[in-house]
Design a protein around this nucleic acid. Structure first.
Lengths: 122, 122
DNA sequence: TATAGTACTATACTTTTTGATAGTACTATA
DNA sequence: TATAGTACTATCAAAAAGTATAGTACTATA
């Protein structure tokens, strides 16, 4: 017997509710610095100051804040090494890597969109 | 012979470039009102004032601005009827409907994320 | 002549997000 | 004792996003 999932009726009500997780996903990627941070970390683990160097223009404050956001959402892991001076290493979690597929899909749509819209404005 | 696309090397340089269309896609969906408008229109064409009623809390200014954005991006079509008083009808374009798949994918990820994160906070 | 209905625009304001700049705590080394 | 290195935080300023409220242009109808 095939497993089926009861799909709620498509009403304004249900659609508005269905919007909440969409917004969640968008929020995770939104803002000026989330994507650059994710990309930087996708190349390998980085310490705070290394990351600050790799992402031109970001301030310490923004980096710190965005990393905390990503950490709270379990997308990035923060590891403190008990050295002197202390060293903190950031890395993508396995879970965080599931974002990559989503980002690729956004990229695919965005690429088509660029082609379509820029063609017109020539 | 299978068609292959030359994939650029994966460097910071190329990744940063690849980020541009991702940002484009995110921008299209970002802001407080884009998703509610898209959902409302996905149920059928609407006039300005009808839409304002269906989207609780939106101001005329925001509605007008966001519709213009969507129109410029060819996601929404604006049709003016030569009546008195004038009536303007908004509808999703065929192209605009291609966003639905993307929205569903965001939703799918967001749903998993909700489950994962909310579970912990209980 | 006044009002109503449509689809907006204009202005000023508040809130949220981001930026600039400086400062903190710790301690090893010169 | 002064400086340097690490990973931040604090404070204030600027910019961007969103809200509140009123006003416009048009004309048919009461």
């Amino acid at each position: 017997m095939a497993k089926t999932i009861a799909k709620p009726e498509r009403t304004h009500e249900t659609c508005t509710k269905a919007l909440i997780p969409v917004r969640d996903a968008l929020d995770i990627l939104s803002g000026k610095w989330k994507l650059p941070i994710i990309i930087a970390l996708s190349f390998g683990n980085l310490r705070f100051s290394q990351m600050a160097k790799q992402i031109p223009g970001i301030t310490d404050k923004m980096l710190s804040k965005e990393l905390r956001d990503l950490e709270v959402n379990e997308l990035v892991k923060r590891t403190v090494y008990d050295t002197v001076p202390v060293v903190v290493e950031y890395s993508m979690t396995t879970y965080g890597k599931t974002l990559e597929k989503l980002i690729e899909e956004l990229q695919a749509w965005g690429l088509l969109h660029r082609k379509r819209i820029l063609k017109k404005s020539k």
